[in-house]
Design a binder for these strands. Structure first.
Lengths: 319, 319
DNA sequence: CTGAAAGCGCTAACAC
DNA sequence: GTGTTAGCGCTTTCAG
């Protein structure tokens, strides 16, 4: 019954007899009829959703990012959310599952390098904060600039021996942060002391444990400032350091990357580079809509912004 | 080609000739063939996703909840995420959009009362932290207990004049928190001074603004402790109160509901009732899977737990 | 063990 | 203007 179809979608340009139309509308509301979206998409070839893959849903960074995406797509598409099972970053299997959803587009937030290497594009796709030579739309996050900003800040405060708590070496975004920071510190005649990533999972406890594990080495190296790859790790570092009796920033400066909203509220307020989660989501969605509509791929860049707060201070006079 | 279908899904119990099977598998990988999930769901009548509607994705409470849901459903279903556009709680339109997704099940996290009133069930559904007389599965969050716990704690500390910062009066979960708290305070001979909800949107700034607005009245009423309906509002209260020179908890005790992970880290660490976001998600998903498999509805209850931290203390000697 | 054929619920093109 | 018909891409049934 094509009339039903037309009426339901309000696509009858006055073509349907008013009486028939009214009868159809009554039946629709009586039966609480809802069209089957599978059948609809099957024939129209226009999927009504996009898939978004994020490494974690507990990290507020991705909450902010999703908010940005949602804001742009509005009611045009619905979101299929894919998150790896706890304690693991996502592999190609999750990406393939997301592609199987039969979607108009796909957003991959900071995919691990190995995942990206085995990725094959099946629909308009936007990759966030990861590099690939493929012809895929990307939102580049200028983490090199972020590392430089943080490095300059610490160097200006007099720090020369800086500890670094890494995270997930499989992601270029993290190694770039470290390298850019290290370059600035070394250029000033200092050294960056890298501590290995805690685990694959990012939470406050991991930061605490990593600090306990690495502090002896850092202390031996005369470290006066520590940078973490992510705010959440920095929270753990500050918590444990304070428990161990160190005052921040007098005894030890702490800084990191992301600037989730809570970083302004922890004690002391955390100096961190705002990685613009919301802006990233906004851009990703815009580029994706563009890729869907015009079948072009594009790359754009988002610049981070340093937020200086109370967790970093001048290096105290030598020991 | 039925053989293809069987091979792709690994459902050929040795029925397919090895040679043919190999040829099919080669073709599948050569063409990077992916079955169309719409067509598949259309015929199998088994949708592969569930919809989850949350009021906000920026509030880590719902991130934790989603993590719980994801953990239980594993790869069995994929999640369609529905979030209202910024600054608004969700109406029935969003719920209907979610139902249109053609899903195996639906989870409604703390729906506003008006939304719930016009809700009609179209598939197995679980309602989180909201009451309805309908025959729908629910996860009850014992917010009355939460209010009592917090009330007893404050009363024991000597507080009798307590300020309350409400949020979204349209939700029973918030009015229950207030009433339960108020009952305990009044029973001890005290009074609860309610400040109206800040706005429909929950963020730190709203908490700050609300505190600025309400403090004159609270001060006049001799308030020595303030409870916020949500941790995030409490962060704003503490921030502004400290900016205004008050020390917490000496001058003013602050407490709230939720216990998102950051509440242990703000300064001072926030006393709050853990509303068990993760557990809520776990239970919701379990109940939903059950509802999908066995077509029964059930109701279960999650009990909150008070976390006493440094933001609450004894009432100072009277003015 | 394999291929042909029907049909899931919808939309679009087409006769009536 | 309105009803009929042919698929969308898959799974399942049923002959060969």
């Amino acid at each position: 019954m094509s009339a039903v179809s037309l009426v339901v979608r309000n696509r009858d340009g006055g073509r349907i007899n008013g009486d028939l139309k009214a009868r159809i509308q009554k039946a629709v509301s009586d039966l609480d009829y809802r069209p089957n979206s599978f059948a609809r998409s099957l024939v129209s070839q226009l999927p009504s959703s996009i898939s978004v893959v994020v490494p974690s849903i507990r990290n507020p960074f991705f909450g902010e990012m999703l908010e940005g995406i949602l804001q742009v797509i509005g009611t045009r598409f619905t979101i299929q959310l894919h998150v790896p099972s706890e304690d693991m970053d996502y592999g190609i299997d999750i990406v393939r599952a997301a592609q199987e959803d039969n979607i108009a587009g796909l957003i991959l937030a900071t995919p691990p390098q190995t995942t990206l290497d085995s990725f094959r594009q099946t629909c308009p796709t936007v990759i966030l904060d990861a590099y690939t030579a493929m012809d895929v739309s990307r939102i580049e996050l200028n983490v090199v600039l972020a590392g430089h900003q943080l490095g300059r800040h610490l160097v200006e405060l007099g720090h020369r021996s800086v500890g670094y708590l890494d995270f997930l070496p499989d992601k270029a975004t993290f190694s770039c942060r470290r390298e850019a920071l290290g370059a600035v510190v070394r250029q000033a005649g200092g050294a960056l002391h890298n501590a290995p990533a805690p685990a694959e999972y990012l939470d406050i406890e991991q930061g605490e444990a990593a600090f306990s594990r690495s502090w002896p080495l850092w202390e031996a190296a005369g470290v006066t400032a520590i940078v973490a790859a992510d705010d959440i790790l920095a929270y753990g570092i500050m918590k444990r350091a304070q428990e161990m009796g160190m005052t921040i920033p007098d005894r030890l400066s702490v800084a990191s990357f992301n600037d989730i909203p809570f970083s302004a509220l922890v004690s002391p307020a955390l100096t961190t580079v705002d990685l613009r989660a919301h802006e990233l989501g906004l851009q990703a969605a815009r580029v994706l809509l563009d890729a869907i509509a015009r079948e072009v791929s594009s790359v754009c860049t988002v610049d981070p912004e340093l937020r200086v707060r109370r967790s970093t201070g001048s290096r105290r006079a030598g020991p």
